[in-house]
Design a protein around this nucleic acid. Sequence first.
DNA 1: ATTGAATCATACAGACCTGTCTGGTAGAGT
DNA 2: ACTCTACCAGACAGGTCTGTATGATTCAAT
Lengths: 190, 190
Amino acid sequence: MQSQSAARRTSARERLLAAADELFYENGINLVGIDRVIERAGVAKASLYDCFGSKEQLIRAYLKGRADKRQARIVERIAGLPTPREKILGVFDLLAEVVNRTDYRGCAFQRASAEAGESSVIKGTCEEPRAWLRSQFTELAQAAKAADPELLGRQLVFLYDGAALAASVDGDRNAPQAARALAAQMLPSD
Amino acid sequence: MQSQSAARRTSARERLLAAADELFYENGINLVGIDRVIERAGVAKASLYDCFGSKEQLIRAYLKGRADKRQARIVERIAGLPTPREKILGVFDLLAEVVNRTDYRGCAFQRASAEAGESSVIKGTCEEPRAWLRSQFTELAQAAKAADPELLGRQLVFLYDGAALAASVDGDRNAPQAARALAAQMLPSD
DNA sequence: ATTGAATCATACAGACCTGTCTGGTAGAGT
DNA sequence: ACTCTACCAGACAGGTCTGTATGATTCAAT
């Protein structure tokens, strides 16, 4: 089998992704150069360009990795909750946990989007997880028999984004709870 | 009088600020170099460093200018509205107007904060207008006899930020109206 | 044993960055 | 007439950036 060569490739790839994740998230994608990434990954520069082709594609992979992790976290969390209402509130509970991690620096997609400049690759990659969350909220709002599920879904995203922003920029670590409280008011009490 | 020499200094300063405002807001503070700013301003590089001392201070001045303009817009708008409830909703109406401008690229403070990196100068400059808006909402919530004005003030900021983000990142130009509708629900109908 | 893929280290190109320095010009106040 | 201030143009220093090129090494598969 090709396991070993594949293992080596993924090993370099994964080390690069891990380094990119830490550095890009902590410092911002534009303030981190390729050299810092490969140094932390312990990988040659040529390997980076073999694996990803460009910095932009590395950023894209970093964002996709974050999106997948967030999505899995949310899916897993709401699977364990019985009602649509509780599922929605569970997303805010999850956010409350995340923002209290010491290395929390805000929503990676919000931040990358702000730094994207002209790159539609990066902007597009940021939009995907946002659209997914919105559709989740909308479906849950529908299941919760909201009068206007589309509208409610968008409003829930406002609260989610706003809370993430307040937690990181203003240092309001209880923002998700405040957003959750408002979400609870909006939802049909069932 | 010193009007002429003062006029020339402010002229260079103002041209620099105007160029910085356009370029930084449109492209992001880290993707715009000093050379592009001075070229658009039609000003010598030495003049920039005479006036501002560093790029960071130019960014700070750019952000302060944006903050002053936003604050003045909001103050003027709510001065013409009779009740606290209408004043609060008026802020969202104002946001609805702003995000429909063709050159709207999102909230300058959100974006600069995402790009700030280690610079506490820039981060701090972003926090000021945010704290001001939050205190406005809180005071208005108190005047509107909300049960918990502090909480409501924070929640209104979530909606404001979330709507601005949705408008710019997701292209949802009606986001402020959706946020306004929710704000209207939260407020004591009086 | 040989081939081929993945990876390594390192130098380089060419561009861009911030900030400084030199030296010159124009006009207002004294 | 002289000075002072604001401003100009442009070169320069020293660093960082992305991306490419060169050539060696390791190791699995054949």
